[in-house]
Structures are given as C-alpha cells and as structure tokens.
Design a protein around this nucleic acid. Structure first.
Lengths: 195, 195
DNA sequence: GTCTATATTACGATAGAC
DNA sequence: GTCTATCGTAATATAGAC
C-alpha cells in the first residue's frame, strides 16, 4: 500500500449506505438523489463507483444469496439425519439473516421488475427448494408431523425465519443471534404450546 | 335503478385492478401508465374515478385493516380463555388474509414513504399490539411455553401467518382457507415435530 | 366517462471542468 | 474523485373536446 487509507467511497462502502436507504424507502422508492444525499456526495459521483442503481441492487442481493447458499455447503448441513441437518440449516438461516441483515432484507423484498430482480427471485427459489428437499427427507423418516403437507410446512418455516428482517434491529442491547435462533428452532419444531 | 348496470369502472372495480398491479410491480414500481394499460382506459380516465395513486392505496389498505380489526370484535376473540381466544384470532387472521388476499398483501408491503403509508403502518402496529396482549395473557395462564419471550413469540406467529401472502394463490384446486388455517394453528401451537 | 394533448416535475444517467 | 450543468425520458396530474 503506497497511499494511506483515504476517507473516500469504494463500491463496497457505498453499497452499505445504499442498502440502508433501499430498505428504508424501498428500491423503487429510492432515487439517485436520495442516495446522493445519504452518502454525502453528488449523484454523478456515485456513477464513478458503480454503473447505476441496479448494480448496487445486484451487489447487495448477491451478498445475501452467497451467505444463504454457503449454509448448504457446511458439514452439518450435509451429514447426519435429515432432521438434524434441517435443524442446523434453520438455525444457520437465522444467523445469516441477522449477520447480513440489510442485504437479506433487500433480497426478500425484491419484486421482479428488472433482470437483476428476476435473477434474484430465481436463486431464492433454488435455495428454498434445497431446504424443502431436506424437510421432505425428514418427513420420510417420520421426524416431521404428517398432518401438514411438507410443501406447506416448508413455507411456514420460511415465513417465520424470513420475518425476522421485519423486526430485528441490532441496536442497543437487544437479543443476540443465538437467542433468536434458539427461539425460532424451538417454536418451529416444538410449537408455542407449553409442553 | 333507472339505468341498467353499465360496463364501466367505479372506484371499487378500478381498485381491484390497481391492487393486482400494485402487488405485481410494487406500489412505487407502478406508474399511472401501468394502471391505465391494465384497466384498459386512459390515464386521465383514472383521475375521473379517483384523485390519484395514493387514494387507490388508501382504499386498499383500509379494506385490509377493516378485515383484520373486525376479527377482534368477534365473540370468540372476546370471551373465553386467552389461549382459546388467541387460537381463534390466529385462525381468523389466516382466513382474512386469504379472503382479502390482494388487499392484505399490499398492506403488508407498505414502507412508509407517504402519509397514507405511515398511517397504515401505525394501524398495523395497533393490531399487532392487540394480538400481543392476548398472547401475553395466555402466557400468564401458563398456556404458552416460557422459554421464549412473549414479544418474540408474537413476532414469529405473525411472521408465519403474514407469509401466507407470499405464496398462497387461489387459482385452481389448491388448498382452501380451512386447510391452511388448520396447518398454521397446528404448526404454531404444536410445532413441526412428530408428536 | 373517456379521450388526446400537454403542463410540470422528477428521474437515471452523462459531459466535461477541476 | 468530486463537482455543476444538462440531456432525454418518464412520472403525476390537468385541460378541454366529445
């Protein structure tokens, strides 16, 4: 490194600002002017770092997807009984949602108006399918209740896990990843009712 | 009635078209041009029926909120043990979500960029709070597991229920309201694990 | 009630100076 | 790397004819 670290934007640091604004106002509700104000530089300066709004979206959802797909490559997601692997994946999904909160939040709100958004939706479906397969295998082993369709059960679990982005805020001394993950796993597998 | 029913738009029929497009493209991603094409009339004709885009949004989320708050006025939501009342409310939330699907979908995606959106968010919080109180009372009775915070449990249930709008489609011979409601109540209260 | 035409503003993106 | 100025387009909404 020949130059000292300068206080200027890189595509990466700009991304964190942009993602925050996207999540506050929605992607379509965010103009380059909004980003410019939030970043403290002019609109045209943003174009020096990235090709446009859509590149910021692409970078953001890619990061989220990488985190999620990474879970499926972990040892505990690949060896063991389907039920144990499923529990591991659910737990890790919560952890990734929280550690990559703004990026996953944006991913989960994508609608499909642009090419990037449609690509993101497709990859999400791919991930969902992989988890559904796991739940199906656990059901075949008799570890999952048989009075609820596997497909429907998968969707309810995803609903519960994904909803975390709607309320979890890291500020202050709130709950940690571990605490939320424990609660989700408990409620998803054992239910709310006092055992 | 002095005139036969004509094949023309009213604010109500126009609303159903608009809400469908809003849900497909997102509210901010939908222009009056998009609505015009979908309704088969010109942009300016839309302004004959409603004052603008935001009125369509207001009418839509109002309808959704009326359906949800209506649940709290039902007998089974007001008398009986908190646990029974909670189960009734959860079941009815699923039914209202499904019977008013496009309207509730739109409500759940509101971000807060306009006055109407902020009003909708506030009323949603009000409803959530009412249900949280119910869950709190059930927990005080010892009917809800005590190793998960009441506040967190409420959020997970809402996550599961609200996620229905992301995948439920009434087309064809899919699941009915009753089937989905049963599944949600089972998973929420008893969990996925084979009993 | 619906249309064409248009006013006006906001948007994404680029040009070119420094 | 950042800026001001600006281009071309698309947005919301209105005017006024039929």
């Amino acid at each position: 490194m020949t130059t000292a670290k300068r206080d200027t934007y890189t595509p990466e640091t700009l991304l964190s600002v942009a993602v925050r604004v996207f999540n506050e106002r929605g992607y379509d509700g965010t103009s380059m002017e909004h980003l410019s104000k939030a970043a403290g530089i002019s609109k045209s300066s943003i174009y020096h770092h990235v090709s446009g709004k859509e590149e910021l979206l692409r970078r953001a959802v890619s990061r989220a997807l990488d985190g999620l797909f990474g879970i499926l490559d972990e040892d505990h997601a690949r060896v063991g009984s389907p039920a144990d692997r499923l529990e591991h994946v659910v737990r890790r999904m919560v952890e990734v949602l929280i550690s990559e909160l703004p990026y996953v939040t944006l991913l989960l709100r994508v609608r499909g108006n642009t090419g990037t958004e449609r690509w993101a939706l497709e990859r999400r479906r791919e991930f969902d399918h992989r988890v559904a397969e796991l739940l199906k295998a656990a059901a075949a082993d008799g570890d999952i209740r048989d009075d609820v369709e596997v497909r429907l059960a998968t969707r309810l679990v995803f609903g519960m896990v994904n909803s975390i982005v709607e309320w979890y805020r890291p500020d202050g001394r709130g709950m940690g990843e571990r605490e939320v993950a424990d609660a989700v796993v408990r409620v998803a597998f054992a239910g709310l009712r006092q055992g």
